[in-house]
Amino acid sequence: MKLTETQIQELYKFTRAHFVYHYDLQTELVDHLAGGIENQIAKNPQLSFQEALHKEFKKFGIFGFQDVVEERQKVLSKRYWKIILRFYKEYFTLPKIALTLLLSVLLFLVLKTIPLGYQNYAISILFVLFLIPSSIKMVIYNRILKKKKRKWMLEEMLLNNIGAFNFIQLPIQFMNIRFEVVNPYILGIISIFSVSLLLLFYVMVFIIPPKAEELLAETYPEYKLMQSV
């Protein structure tokens, strides 16, 4: 006996009810459950769909799908970081490294000229200035995500920039650390570090999300298939 379309939809609902929110993972689990149920009913035709489902789900152990979801998250966040690195590296290769250096030199000059005691504020302001357009972008991405019927785990990571805001808090902390640096080498390091960090956020918030579609197709062979349905 083959499961009907309605029963397959019921299985999707079942995975959602058991805390699997992403379509990519749901699909794999639905196929698994469906295979198991079909097999059980073939062996024992008296068995109802619900009974077979219950039996099949039990095989996942007391934690249900939790392990599967957690492991998938780990694997995909690794993938996300690899994607970030791929795009981030461009800022350290020839045409763009000039931009990175230029920005670092500019920041260095600013830090060097402003009166001692205000350097930490200069850096904080720089980050806050960056934070404003990025927050707007993030809100927009969030709206896009919410509207989607199907959630893809990687898409959520790409558009939500996991942890980006935690990093952003870091420079805000500068506000509270008073430092008066005269040594040009240390100023240089601070400049390069701040610019590199900002470029990293820039890549996460402005460069990668518009490429989400492409990256999802690369990760999920079923992505394109589903877009056309």
Partner: peptide, 15 residues
């Protein structure tokens, strides 16, 4: 093979 172990293993090998 427990299902709870199979899929994490597959996903990891894929990664």
């Amino acid at each position: 093979i427990t299902e709870g172990a199979l899929y994490p293993a597959l996903h990891k090998l894929e990664a």
